[in-house]
Design a protein around this nucleic acid. Sequence first.
DNA 1: CGCGCTCTTGACGAACATCAAGCTCCGTGG
DNA 2: CCACGGAGCTTGATGTTCGTCAAGAGCGCG
Lengths: 249, 249
Amino acid sequence: MAEHMTGLTEQLQTFFGRIRLRDTLGEEEEQALVEAASERITFAAGEDLVTEGDRPTRSILLTRGYACRYRLQKGGGRQLMAIHLPGDFVDLHSLLIKEMDHSVGALTECAIITFPHDRLVRVTERLPHLTRMLWLLTLIDASCHREWLAGMGLLSAAQRTAHLICEIYVRLEVVGLASGHKFNFPITQAALADAVGISSVHINRVVQELRQRDLISWENGLLTIHDWQALVATADFNDRYLHLVKEQR
Amino acid sequence: MAEHMTGLTEQLQTFFGRIRLRDTLGEEEEQALVEAASERITFAAGEDLVTEGDRPTRSILLTRGYACRYRLQKGGGRQLMAIHLPGDFVDLHSLLIKEMDHSVGALTECAIITFPHDRLVRVTERLPHLTRMLWLLTLIDASCHREWLAGMGLLSAAQRTAHLICEIYVRLEVVGLASGHKFNFPITQAALADAVGISSVHINRVVQELRQRDLISWENGLLTIHDWQALVATADFNDRYLHLVKEQR
DNA sequence: CGCGCTCTTGACGAACATCAAGCTCCGTGG
DNA sequence: CCACGGAGCTTGATGTTCGTCAAGAGCGCG
């Protein structure tokens, strides 16, 4: 067990941080999560962590890299439905949903920690407040889905792109994974296009527009926001949907 | 208390049915929900059940009518993010989310039952399996959001419209609120346009196309599906995302 | 050196928004 | 009884956004 836990607690700190942004997390609760953890696995960019139709027996927590939820279309199209960052409990859903209705893929090299479902169920039997915290994390995922959905209906391609950049920066920043309005973003324009819901040709023009307006630069996988206020204004970005308020839940 | 419960259990049957589609629901669990219920309220079409920015102290279960989650834009646009039917626990989210990041409105006259948050928290402290069932319902909501999101990126306006019709029919049908491929759908074309994410002019043309292809008819608030197979085919509809499988969760 | 992946650019077309006008239906008040 | 008005539906004309097709450039990698 000592072996098992080497480095594990450290690797879960970002995850704990994401909970502590919203409520307090007790010693016993933290310990229960550490004990529920199982394997550590890495994936190469492009690999699937979970595939549509799977019936996982464990949930996946992302500790390193960018992952995405996505759905493929018969015709060959792809739509991303979320981008996940270190500290995200990527498919906590599968604990109750059972059969995956979408896939989770690695956008970059990824490292994960797995949590067997039976251990998580035991957590729900024993620790109601921690259960609510896990539930809350999935509710915030849903809130992000709604935000993207509203963006698809109400915003232009350029606005949605700006919005996504704002979202990722804030979510990285609040857990100390980014600062100074810049962050590593080593994904392809094609992947970004699938997230924003437009073609790869068009995302290229949108990115160039954002660069020419001097809102951002993006080279060698490093994205820099030059004018945060202006980026927020064009995207009509409001972080309320991320629920970053610490209170009793 | 006898007074309080008059008719209440009956009004919750559709809700219990939605849970029983996915797992068994024990006598004690059902009773706990009945006891957690509080007021019954009705709303006229167009009224808000909850408004963006509110901090509700109770959650709302819809027992009659159509409601929707929506977000407004400064410019005046509106995007629906879900349509809710009788038996849906509409803003169970607010139990943990606390501050509403969107509004819930009545598309038709609606009747609701309220559940004070403190009573629901007590349920989570006492009944882990029922807690997981409530959690599951919010996960299925999220799954619907993802489905709509994928549709926005991958499907045409006509396909999304067909998809929405399929979704509503199935969700009504599985709890016995519709059969024979028809259902009451007394909403305006403008509201449908906001759901599909297109203009009211364009939804009109889309609806006419669906009528001319003899897929549906829709008059006096009654929508009839004439060719279910063809409608499913055009929408590329697959009900997997509704998670209608009964199993241990 | 050559291959493949990503990014870039131009030309053209399709899907959908916007603007504008007229329609039907229905309730309300005279 | 009809006039009026509003809400929702319908239709046409025009413009914008974005998709698709096609080609080429830069670059890392074997």
